[in-house]
Structures are given as structure tokens and as C-alpha cells.
Design a protein around this nucleic acid. Structure first.
Lengths: 344, 344
DNA sequence: CTTTAGCACTCAGCATCTTTGAGTGCTAAT
DNA sequence: ATTAGCACTCAAAGATGCTGAGTGCTAAAG
């Protein structure tokens, strides 16, 4: 007993139907589908086999069957086809592309909004980041006595800011001078190397300012990671749609988890750098997301991958449509960023 | 028939009890409270009066009474007393204060986290802003050909960034020169005046760069508002606790509304600059928030009010406790910012 | 050997009915 | 003015029964 052609066809029909209706699907509806020339009894037998093989599950004895995670996995790998979008949906996306330039934050937020409004699920977009990020500019702006704001601009277009302590005998002029020195000397230096080089090479010039230099370096190192943690989120309310009705506690857990940016970050990160990644139900690891799936896509500046966007929905989401949307949006976002950030 | 002393005492007891239990309170529980030397029948009569006066409502004939918005208003104005916090809660807040300096974003987020974790409601904190914001530094960082990143630092410690177009014949050096000129000439200039002055006074120096100057000015003007729209939000999942159980649609609406930052911004803004503001149920205007209350506090840098923080919860929230927490947190946040930002 | 008709069986979901108990308003006595 | 007492109301929680979609199995037909 293995997955012959007919079993595959039936399985596929079940997944399609279930994604569409959300209700367990029985043998009768399938037999009514004219593309099957089979009686419900025959289909029942096949379904029993599929259940034994672990592709189907039965909520209770007298209900239809529901696809298991394993079935979705098979579906996504072998049977899914991208679906076309409605004119409305296309229009939403191209309106997004026609937008004028803005701050990076705004672009990310808008990307997430479009994603969630088309899919009706929860959308996530990470800020662009890359271990190879290069320095464009660094500025120390004096605040109150003993404090300064560090602003770092990288070639990923990110302005990161943090407050650090400065020696009280360091005036605005000196801070400005240091800013220019660093900006010039380390222009285009990889951020991953910058920390070390700063400490090594500037130590002699700032002999008596060791603590200051150390804090500055630390900040830039921390900024690397911290910045990536900024994730644009949109459509969290859609989470409430699908947790089995009335199960409000479940919904709370989900929401609480979604609010923790580091959970999200880990999830998105785990996808790795692939065109598309699907993680279905149990594959997500956590029990909390046990009937959710996460589909992600990588976006690029030029040809280097710099970020991830994704959609969290129920395992029974229309994967074909979601992939189509993610594909379009990741390319659009990549295009926008490439335009603005890439040097020729 | 008016609000004599006894009626007030009864009303107060009802509100206290209802906030505590969440269930409609009947005459019997009140009469058992030893501080009343009255039979349940007498209390029933008084309660009937209070209902006629609009302070109480009855979910259905055979249930106890529930305070109306009007009752809460009276309670908040005249009867509420601040409550003490548990040792744990105090500890959470002072741990927050002991934190090392960080970026503004992080501080705001953490403030919201603490607020929501102590109150178990949804917390909001606006970024510091003020029409009197003054310029500290402006930097134009060249990106790809034809684009630059504008970074603006104000005395509210905010680094705002946006991408603008620049004429292609403007090199990095020129951009840097402009940055220094503006930073120096307009140091400490009010942001509200900056736009106008830039256009008027720099026009002659950048004769052939009119479009560029205009866009720069526009960006800074827009940044004023846009920045304020950034609101740290925490504990949205707590919204799911109180919408009448099972009423999942209601919860969705609430969440969707909360996600719209501009709604939030308006709500917080409407509070005006007062020490504390309470808006109870219908007073919030929207039907969506009809059984919610919003309590806000203003925080200051030095003595100038620069932002608002608040808590959204059910109308039956323990106002006394919430005020205590807001008071402490607004002062703490104010203190932190003042320390870092204020010039002596 | 494969397919199918037929039948007995299961069980969630829904509607209906009943019971329970907390709470009320009114009246008459204190 | 207060209160005891009583009849009344009604939501919430159980109990009961019905329905229908769906199953598994068996035996006959292809």
C-alpha cells in the first residue's frame, strides 16, 4: 500500500477542498466532483488508507477527514501551484510600488500592511541587515553634559541611534572632529570589522578616553543585532480569525507570542536564505503555533539577500496565493531598496 | 431625591466591589458588609434610586447592578484613592529605572512593557515631541546616485530619518558642507520655525537647487508630525481578557483599531496636557471603545511636557492602582530623559 | 481483483425543556 | 424610616432527544 496516482489525486482534492471550506471533507463531496469517476465507498477506502499512512486525520468518528501537517508538506512540495490574484489585489500591490521615497521605517511598515491586507493574515517584515553592512556615516551629537547621541548610517540605509556616556571634558567640537575622522577613515568598512578596528586603531589617538571608545564600540556592535530585531508587523488582529472558535485563550497566547519580537526574529531567521520557506504546524517547533504555518521569502539589495518577509496564518492557508504575493512583494521591496541604496 | 451621603457610600461600595469581582453586585453582598448597618431591602431601595439617577444599570431584571459610565466618572472625580503597589510591582519599576542608557526607542518600548506588565492592560507611550523642539544636528548622507538620507537630531533626543532626492551634480562633499552649515546656523532653532527659515534664508545660497531645498524642508516638516506618530505599544493581548467572553468579533475590532497608530495618536492627543486624564467608556467618543477606559499621564523634560503615556483597559479597571503606576512611570521617564537631554 | 450498493452505527451540533438560584420590587408590619 | 417576607423574573447550566453527515464493513456485481 503506497501512494499511487489515485491516492495522490484524492489527497490533493481533499487539501484543496479543506483549504477552501475549512470543514472536514467527507467521501461524498469528493465523489460528486465529476473528475472522479468513483463511488463514495471507493473513496472511503482510499481515505482510510491515507489515514493509515498519516496524511489524514479524523476529528471524530463521524466527521470527514482533515489533512495532517504531513499532507500539507507533500502538497507544498509537489502539488501546489501558484494562483493568480484578483485585479484588486494586483492594484494594491502596484499602488504600493508607485509610492514616493520615504524613510526606511515607513517603507517596511507599508510592505507589511500590503502583505497583510492582501492575504488577510499576519505579516512580518525584517529590516534589511547583513553582516557585510558597510559604514556610511557616523555622527556624535552632544546632548546634556556627559551624554551624546550616536547616529550610525550604513549602506543598508539604516540610521541607528543610541545614547552613550562621554567624558565631560569632551566638547562639541571634539565630538564633531571624532565623528568626521571615523566617518572618513572607516567609510565603507564592514560593520562586523569596525568594532575591532576602532578599538585597535583609535586607541592611541584617544589614549585617555579608553572607556568612551569602548562604549562607542560596544554600542555599534549591539546596534548590529538590535536593529535587526526591529520587525514591521501588520494584521495581528487576523490571528483571531482562525484559532478554533471560542478558544480565546489560544488567541491570547498567540498574540502574546507575536508581541515578543525576538520570537519572531528567531522564526524568520530560521528560514535561512532561500527563495521561499514553508514551515507547517509542528515544523515550527513551538506548540503555540501548532496549527499555524509560516511562509517566508527573502528580499535582496542587488543580489545580496538582506532581509526576510513572511506571513503567519492557519495551516490551511492558500499557499499558492501566499507565495504569489510574497514573490511579488519581495521583488518590489528589493527593487525599491536597490534603487535608493546601491552604488553603481 | 438626590445624592445624600448614604447613597454616595453605597455607590462607592458598588463600584469598588464591581471593579474587584466583575460580576453585577446585588443588595445582599452589600448588606453583609459590616460597615453598612442596613438590611438588603433598604439597600435595594437606595439602589433603585441610584438607577433612576443614572448611576447604575441592570443587565437584566434578576441580576445585580453594574455602575454606569456616569458612576465611574463620579468615582474617579471624587471617591477614588490611589492604591499602594505590591513589593513585586515596586521592584519591577525600580529595576526599570536602574537601566543603563540606551536608544530612545528602546526606552519607550521598555516603558510600555513595564506599564502593561504591572497593570495587565494595554499600554501606550508616545515619543517625546514638542512644537518647541530645537535642532541639534542635521546630516545628509549620500546614498545611491540621486538619493540621500536626512538624519535630524532634536533636543528631544529623536533621530528622525528619511530619504530624499538630491540633484545628481551634488557630491558628498557638498552635502556635507550643507549639513554643517545648517547644523551650525540653525543650532537650537525651533523646528516649527526651521522650515520657513530654511526656505527663506538658504534660497540665495542654493539658487539652482530650489527643488532640493523644498524637499528637504518638506521632509523636516513632515518629520515633525510623523515622528510623533510613533507610539510604543505593549500588552495588546490583554485586550482579549475583557471583551465579554466569547465575543471574539469585538476583540478583533479592538485589535484592528489599536493597530492603527493614528487612532491611538488622536486618543492620546485628545487628553491634552494635564497631569492625568481619564476617559471612560462613552467619553472616548468611539463606539468601538464603548466599554473601555483610557487613563493617561503627561511626562516632561525638565518642566516642559513632551509626551503622553496611557493605559487602555475595561471601564472597570482599578483606577487607583493605574494612576499610581502612571504617576511613578511618567516621573521616571521624565527623569531619565531630562538627565540625558536637558542642557544646564 | 476492483468497485460499489447497502446498511448499521457513531457522534457533534442544535433545539427544546427543566431546574436552580441569585436577585428584584412591593407590601405590610415594626 | 426600616425591614421581614413573599411572589416574581430570568440567565445559566443540565438533561434529553433529534437530525444528518459521515464512517466501516459486508456481500454482490463487474
Amino acid at each position: 500500500m503506497d501512494l499511487n496516482h489515485r491516492k495522490l489525486r484524492i489527497l490533493r482534492a481533499i487539501v484543496d477542498e479543506y483549504i477552501l471550506s475549512g470543514a472536514p471533507v467527507g467521501s461524498k463531496v469528493l465523489s460528486q466532483n465529476p473528475s472522479f469517476r468513483l463511488s463514495s465507498a471507493t473513496i472511503r477506502n482510499e481515505m482510510a488508507d491515507l489515514e493509515d499512512l498519516g496524511y489524514l486525520e479524523q476529528p471524530h468518528t463521524s466527521a470527514g477527514r482533515v489533512p495532517s501537517d504531513k499532507a500539507y508538506r507533500l502538497y507544498v512540495n509537489n502539488m501546489m501551484q501558484r494562483s493568480n490574484l484578483s485585479a484588486d489585489e494586483m492594484e494594491t500591490m502596484s499602488a504600493y510600488c508607485r509610492n514616493r521615497v520615504k524613510g526606511l521605517d515607513a517603507v517596511m511598515r507599508e510592505t507589511a500592511n500590503v502583505l497583510s491586507s492582501i492575504t488577510h493574515y499576519t505579516a512580518l517584515v525584517t529590516m534589511p541587515e547583513n553582516a557585510a553592512n558597510r559604514l556610511r556615516h557616523l555622527q556624535l551629537v552632544p546632548l546634556a553634559d556627559g551624554y551624546a547621541l550616536v547616529v550610525v548610517v550604513t549602506d543598508a540605509g539604516v540610521a541607528r541611534d543610541a545614547v552613550i556616556h562621554v567624558p565631560t571634558d569632551m566638547g562639541p567640537d571634539e565630538l564633531d572632529k571624532i565623528s568626521r575622522t571615523i566617518s572618513q577613515r572607516y567609510y565603507n568598512c564592514r560593520m562586523s570589522e569596525l568594532t575591532g578596528r576602532l578599538l585597535r586603531e583609535m586607541g592611541s589617538e584617544l589614549l585617555d578616553k579608553g572607556a568612551f571608545l569602548q562604549e562607542l564600540a560596544d554600542t555599534m556592535e549591539a546596534g548590529q543585532g538590535a536593529n535587526a530585531q526591529r520587525i514591521a508587523l501588520s494584521g495581528a488582529n487576523n490571528l483571531l480569525d482562525y484559532p478554533a472558535y471560542g478558544d480565546i485563550d489560544r488567541a491570547r497566547q498567540l498574540l502574546a507570542e507575536i508581541e515578543k519580537k525576538d520570537t519572531l526574529y528567531r522564526l524568520l531567521k530560521n528560514a535561512g536564505v532561500v527563495e521561499f520557506s514553508f514551515r507547517i504546524g509542528s515544523e515550527l517547533g513551538t506548540d503555540i503555533f501548532k496549527d499555524c504555518s509560516l511562509v517566508t521569502a527573502t528580499y535582496r539589495i542587488g543580489t545580496t539577500p538582506v532581509g526576510t518577509m513572511g506571513v503567519i496564518g492557519p495551516t490551511r492557508m492558500p499557499y499558492g496565493k501566499v507565495v504569489t504575493v510574497l514573490d511579488y512583494m519581495s521583488k518590489s521591496l528589493g527593487g525599491i531598496l536597490t534603487n535608493v541604496l546601491e552604488e553603481e
